[in-house]
Write a protein that binds this DNA or RNA. Structure first.
Lengths: 212, 212
DNA sequence: AATGTAACTGAGCAATCGTTCAAATATATA
DNA sequence: TATATATTTGAACGATTGCTCAGTTACATT
């Protein structure tokens, strides 16, 4: 039943995401979008319905990419805690080269939009919560193998991470000077609240041994 | 030489700030602005020159207000460290009721604008740096009276504070649940990097005594 | 009261906004 | 090759954008 070669939807959404990520929702016009994704208005509206529709598709694309990245890093890492740290470093440091904005697109969107765009705002909020839940998963996994103190609440640690990542990325954007990001992230994981005291480490090891 | 009653510039800029703070730069139209500040286009352009001019005046107004607030809190506080903590709590917790956006207007601006608005972007960046320098001043003062470890770099602690405030305010905006902000801010100041070990506290006291 | 001028007004400009849709095009099927 | 239909095109719509400026108003000075 398919009749035409059609456009490559993935590539189109990727390009739209790039533009929206860089310029934000309001500063991106449909004309900008037409150029960026090489489609004419009629085709865009047939596929996405509206400017908001394209933006929503971009938010979903970005979210899917982020979660896939976390999973990919987890698989390539020796442990869940190492994976977390790798992801943070990637999100904060590597993102400065090659990405349209050093901000997280979801955070940038939540910062920009108001109640006038309730739907899009909720999509972005929910997406950030999904990413946070991925963190929680990794933290629980880390607690399971004694890499993180069992006493701490995994969801609180995940929230802590979100706050640190967002704060750092925003700070980078405000600052022209060079900031010792690697060191700061190392300290995040070496000190409160991820730090495990030596005594606690022993207890955890004992527990793991008795469990087996 | 003055001929007309003229408008109350302070009140006008305050109202403009309120609107820009809520909706952001791009989503605020000159028509919105005209209504908010009760001025007609001709008068606005005579006074501010352009939409950017009004926005710049708003950024400067907001900055001046922020720094005045820090100084005011310092004068009302028993110590510089208490002042810092009070300001953080005010910026993070109290701002949720009564302000146009729970984001910092300067951070929100830096997040939204791109190179296309270089001038405004630089104004916002510089303003954030000014606030950070106020933090640094308070921290140095706190170090002078032994409230904060002298070994730590004041500018690094100030940067740390900026990152925490920004991260927290952004997180609040993304989250619909209630977050234990008071507890989290308390922990900020009780643990790394503001914590002073008991032993260090004694040393500092000794130094202060020998200095006198 | 008459005059000069600083301050304000708002209709309206060109440009751009998000969006529509009749016409053109390209492919699958007959 | 002819027909049917899925897909794309881009001119153009009404609304809105940032902004201008000739005309009006309100006050200080004479």
């Amino acid at each position: 039943m398919s009749k035409k070669p059609k456009f490559d939807r993935d590539k189109v959404v990727a390009n739209a995401t790039k533009l929206y990520w860089e310029k934000g929702y309001h500063a991106t016009s449909m004309r900008n979008l037409q150029d960026a994704i090489d489609m004419r208005p009629g085709s865009i509206y047939a596929e996405f319905g509206s400017k908001d529709g394209v933006f929503k598709a971009s938010l979903e694309h970005y979210t899917q990419l982020s979660i896939a990245q976390i999973n990919s890093i987890r698989e390539a890492s020796e442990s869940p805690l190492v994976a977390l740290k790798t992801f943070v470093k990637q999100a904060v440091i590597d993102t400065q080269k090659g990405t349209p904005s050093c901000m997280c697109m979801l955070a940038k969107t939540v910062s920009e939009l108001t109640e006038e765009q309730r739907d899009l705002l909720d999509v972005a909020k929910q997406a950030l919560k999904s990413v946070e839940n991925q963190f929680t998963g990794l933290i629980i996994e880390a607690q399971g193998i004694g890499e993180i103190d069992q006493e701490k609440h995994a969801s609180e640690l995940a929230r802590f991470l979100q706050i640190q990542i967002t704060g750092l990325r925003m700070y980078i954007r405000t600052s022209d000077e060079r900031v010792p990001l690697g060191k700061m992230i190392d300290e995040l994981f070496e000190h409160y609240p991820f730090k495990i005291l030596e005594s606690q480490l022993c207890e955890v090891d004992e527990v793991r041994q008795t469990e087996k």
